[in-house]
Amino acid sequence: MTPDPAPARPPSSPADRYRYGLRIGVTTVAGTLLLTMSMLRNVRSYHPVWSQAVAWAVLAGVVLIGVAQVARHRPWGRSRPVAIGAVLTASGLSMAGLPAGAATTAADWSTGVVGWVGLVVLFDRPLAVFVGFLCVHEAMVLVDVLVTRSGEVDTLLNALSGAIGTLGYPLAGAIAATALAGAARTVERSWRESELLRTREVIAARLHSGRRHRFATLDQGVLPLLRALRDGTAEPTDAQVRRACSIEAARLRRLFAESEDADNPLLHIVRHCVDVAERRHVVVELQVSGQWPDPPDEVRRVLTDGLLIVVSTAVSWARVTLVGATGQLTLGAVGDGVEIPAAESTVTKDVVVDTISEGRLTWVQARWTMP
């Protein structure tokens, strides 16, 4: 038994699902006891009979409301005091209609039911609240015994011994629910800790994979170029070496941009590539339109490979267009840079790349069909 949850929502965590199952069990017990009560077997002894019928109807109504609350995953909320008042009123009404000396006997059907119906209403309240409810109900029973049997010792002893069953079982159920709810919370904490550990492992694996990719990129391009410059096999005055350095610098900028947080990672990378050209005083025109989902890392690299070459080798100007429309993302670049010997079209990672060179102009267009 725990305090009222603030929002009403379907059970999601293991502890919530466990408490929800216990609540269903308590409601089922209360409903079963109402259907199997002994009122019908003793109906001729009640005066008046209507008081027992009304009391039964009130308790049944509370249980039905409890069933509806369970089905809608809602707590009792502000209706809880009204429901408890109705349960105690029904108990008093049933006692008032008992014949003299019938309290705590088989004819007193409500005494064994009220505790479970009260537990339906107070299931998610602290245990002390339910114990207080049971004490009030037991006090009502003792008062009824004193009034109808003049306080005979045997009668009082019978009432107290009967309370072990009529009140002890609901109390035992409430204690068990409290203990099991505590165990469920412990299980939930362990579950959340294990989920957090698995999440950290996945993040660590992805970070490691990203580092391996970055090191592989350095091994393929930057490091061989640096070694050649160090060994003297590549001369900084050579135009081709300078173009290679510019391309590798753009690839490094793309590598750094991939690890940065951005609302639009692809556009963020494109702007980094453009910045490389602008630092060389190349005039770059960037046009962006449309919307697109974030492409996977491999797709982004294929999309921007041609862009890297165009803006990194442009001599004086370049134009870059990024368009997302009709289920397709297109990244195009044209500039007065390095000449590619022949036109070609390639397909890599579901990206179609067209490259055309004419004179000192190079045009590259990469098209990716959005999922």
Rank of each mutant, 00 (worst) to 15 (best):
G165I: 10
N158H: 13
T155Y: 03
V136E: 00
E235I: 07
L303G: 00
R301I: 09
D219R: 06
E344F: 09
E258C: 00
G85D: 04
L122I: 11
T304E: 02
V136W: 07
A139N: 01
L229I: 13
Q220H: 11
D275N: 11
S209E: 15
R78T: 10
H137P: 00
I84V: 15
N264S: 06
A106V: 07
A15E: 06
S45H: 13
V276T: 13
P11R: 10
G97K: 08
R149C: 02
H281Y: 09
R280W: 04
T355D: 02
L88M: 12
I175H: 02
W317Q: 10
A177M: 04
R206Y: 02
M95Q: 09
G77M: 07
R367W: 03
P14S: 07
A244W: 03
V364E: 01
L122N: 01
Q240T: 12
P265F: 10
Q240C: 02
A163L: 13
D261F: 05
V113A: 09
D108W: 11
A106C: 02
L167G: 08
I203V: 14
S13A: 15
E298L: 14
L180F: 12
V49D: 02
R74D: 03
Y169L: 15
S209Y: 06
A216G: 08
Y18G: 02
A71E: 04
H208E: 14
G210I: 03
H213G: 02
L33N: 02
F256V: 13
F215A: 04
R185Q: 07
P3V: 08
L226E: 01
R319Y: 04
C135Q: 05
L255F: 03
A204F: 09
R254K: 05
V334H: 00
P293S: 09
V283S: 14
V347S: 10
R227D: 06
T36R: 14
I309C: 02
V310L: 11
A342M: 07
L255G: 05
R72Y: 01
V113Y: 06
S12L: 13
P293G: 06
L160K: 02
T178D: 02
V187P: 00
E258I: 04
A177E: 02
L223M: 11
M39A: 09
S345A: 11
A102C: 05
T27H: 06
L197Y: 08
D275R: 15
V145F: 00
V153P: 00
W292M: 09
P81A: 04
